[in-house]
Design a protein around this nucleic acid. Structure first.
Lengths: 229, 229
DNA sequence: ATAAATTTAGACAGGCTTGTCCAAATCGTC
DNA sequence: GACGATTTGGACAAGCCTGTCTAAATTTAT
């Protein structure tokens, strides 16, 4: 049964591929139409699969929906943690490095397909499946926010920032960096790259005005305008 | 036909009251169940009205939905502008006044029934009715954001703040003040009053660290710690 | 090439919803 | 008290969707 061809575990192959394409298609349809409006025939068609195959793999509509949310949560979390790993712990140019981090976070985790879909499903069906989304809340924000806060705490400890409460600072960082994208997110749209960069740039500048160290008597630029007052 | 009893226009009275209770009930059901999942019988029952009456008033499900969104948009906008009118143009205690404004905005416009419902409908059905929600975008954020920006510009002009771009500052103010409520909003919940106050307080403090004037040689408190560096 | 597993297409019952129709009851007003 | 407008409850057709069942076709591995 286990031929040495594929490097690791590869049970049925075409089987698993179909499972994935079904979940993938289902995510799209659930997002577009909502749970009630989603049509199993349509999901099957978009997955390139017969309706019966959908039922073979997932039992019923609700189980399929659960599978979709679980898959999305898992992939999004993986992406977020991968991006957090690129946080600038020892920044050269703090402003540029934080902007880069914010843009990566947005492009790879929030604005990409999975992020968009997961967000929409949470907004749309969150109230109907409390346990399912409570799980998301714990696995998602409950773990990613503290991870980001820890990175900011490290920057503060390293003398790059002046922060009272790292958790608050982390949430405010995210709020600032996305401040200009709220309306687009609300309507389910995807902001253009330059909008993401713009919002991140403005957000990080304000963040550093609030939490950044004042330049220490060397390297004075526009800061001079603020020094008096 | 026009008896002098009621002060202004009051055509049928009980008629209009029913229309309102239908729209009201429909808003609740559309939000809970989504457009596809919403059931006209249920709406009628919650409105305390027979199904036929719903059809008499609104024609069909889609027209009813439109009426709901229009009503909500109108009422929310009115509330937001009323609250903007309480913006502290000549603040005594800038921090306290801005926190008060932020809390009012949240409690009266964002977290109240109408605000919650409108937000959910935009998130849920925004993509399906582009024109309808484009109208909301113009009438809502398109008019309220500049109005808030103008108030901040006035504060800057009056010497209370140092702001480059008032539009950016306005959006960032909203982002900061709601930074800690994002997850709750996502899941459709209503934050407790103390959460709103907490988020507003933290947000305004950070906002003022970024945009506030440094105390001018008088009234030094914790600011002294930042002065050196 | 053969045997087992998987997929397909289509039919089908059962349930639910929308929107219409109608006759009887109710309400508001003169 | 009477009249017109509105509301009610229920019946109804038509459509759509889920989930099941079947027998045939197709894939996959030995």
């Amino acid at each position: 049964m286990r031929l040495g061809v594929s490097p690791d575990t590869f049970p049925p192959r075409g089987h698993e591929a179909k499972r994935l394409s079904i979940v993938e298609a289902a995510a799209g349809v659930f997002c577009r139409e909502g749970f009630a409006g989603a049509n199993i025939d349509l999901i099957a068609a978009e997955a390139g699969v017969s309706r019966q195959t959908v039922y073979n793999h997932h039992g019923d509509k609700e189980k399929l929906f659960m599978a979709v949310v679980r898959d999305l949560t898992e992939r999004c979390n993986a992406g977020i943690f991968a991006t957090i790993a690129t946080f600038p712990d020892q920044p050269g140019d703090l402003e540029a490095d934080l902007i880069g981090f914010a843009v990566r976070l947005n492009q790879n985790c929030i604005c990409n397909r999975d992020g968009k879909f997961l967000r929409k499903l949470i907004q749309t069906e969150g109230e109907r499946y409390p346990e399912l989304f409570a799980e998301w809340r714990e696995q998602g924000p409950g773990r990613t926010w503290p991870a980001i806060a820890a990175r900011f705490a490290r920057l503060a400890y390293g003398g790059y920032l002046t922060i009272d409460d790292p958790d608050v600072a982390a949430r405010q960082f995210l709020g600032l960096v996305n401040a200009e994208l709220q309306t687009t997110f609300m309507l389910g749209g995807t902001p253009r790259e330059d909008e993401v960069v713009q919002s991140a740039t403005n957000g990080v500048r304000t963040f550093l005005r609030a939490f950044g160290k004042r330049p220490s008597s060397s390297s004075v630029k526009k800061q001079s305008a603020l020094a008096n007052a």
